[in-house]
């Protein structure tokens, strides 16, 4: 059992490693993508400088906390797209019948699918997140918490994207709905939760899991609370289990398109 898990992890790591090596074939494009994505994210600092110039406190957040929020959102989404990018384009595989190639592989289908591609620009997101955290609110403890929450957040976001993508097993045009929901998550993740109230807040902490992936971790990093940390961890396990369940239920409905393709 342990050997099987070890082998599976090794296959995933190798898959991600080869994805990155493939992207690195053109070094200029690879580096341009990373640097410009970091710059792209940095442009939003202007937005917050202006907003904090108008008001000193926005939704209970100061500039330092908003930057931590931005940093965590960027590194969380970045890590998810470095490790599990295919989870975000799953509908494409389902609709065009490209899952066949993964079904015949001797390893876990889901892990083989989601680790089969890497988004180069996401490396820029991840590095930007860490850099922003180090500049605006560095402490050793917070740094390790940041890395931990980036990993947990990446799992939550991937699970959510996987569930949304799996809707394509059942519904036509579900890919558009899924894309929109993931985009919504990104939109909400970069604004303080203090500006939302009532039902919206409930929605953000339960239906669109941005609260557990980004907001709650930021609160914990500012004021550590073990109970909240365990809640986030429990939520990540729960949503991952739900995503795996939905994917495999959907997979039963999958039918091949007789597409001939080679994976290299």
């Amino acid at each position: 059992m342990l050997t099987a898990v070890k082998n599976q992890v090794r296959v995933c790591v190798l898959s991600i490693k080869y994805n990155i090596m493939r992207e690195m074939l053109n070094k200029v494009t690879f580096l341009t993508n990373i640097c410009f994505m970091a710059l792209n994210n940095a442009a939003f600092i202007i937005q917050w400088v202006i907003l904090f110039h108008l008001k000193k406190d926005i939704g209970g957040y100061t500039m330092k906390e908003v930057m931590l929020l931005w940093g965590l959102a960027a590194s969380t989404f970045g890590l998810a797209c470095i490790l599990f990018d295919r989870a975000f384009s799953l509908p494409d595989l389902i609709i065009s019948g490209k899952l066949d190639a993964y079904l015949v592989m001797p390893k876990n289908v889901l892990l083989s699918v989601i680790t089969s591609s890497t988004n180069t620009s996401a490396i820029g997101d991840f590095l930007y997140g860490i850099l922003v955290m180090c500049i605006f609110s560095f402490s050793v403890g917070r740094f390790f918490l940041f890395l931990l929450f980036s990993a947990i957040g990446a799992v939550i976001i991937t699970a959510f994207a996987l569930m949304m993508g799996s809707l394509s097993f059942w519904f036509v045009r579900a890919e558009l709905f899924g894309d929109n929901m993931v985009n919504c998550m990104i939109s909400f993740a970069t604004y303080p939760d203090g500006i939302f109230h009532g039902k919206v807040r409930f929605l953000l902490y339960n239906i669109i899991p941005v609260g557990m992936a980004v907001y709650q971790p930021v609160h914990i990093m500012m004021r550590f609370d073990l109970g909240s940390l365990l809640t986030v961890l429990g939520y990540a396990i729960l949503i991952s289990a739900a995503a795996v369940f939905v994917f495999y239920r959907g997979l039963r409905r999958y039918s091949s398109s007789s597409l001939m393709a080679a994976r290299m």
Binding site: L51, L54, K55, I58, G59, R173, L176, F177, N180, M181, N183, C184, S187, F188, Y191, G194, I195, F196, V200
Partner: peptide, 25 residues
């Protein structure tokens, strides 16, 4: 046209965030 309707979700959410932000400001 249905595909365009699906895009409405993102627009709605984006504006929704901004309405809350400016209401706060």
């Amino acid at each position: 046209v249905m595909n365009i309707f699906m895009g409405f979700i993102s627009y709605f959410m984006f504006i929704f965030v901004f309405i809350h932000l400016w209401n706060y400001m």
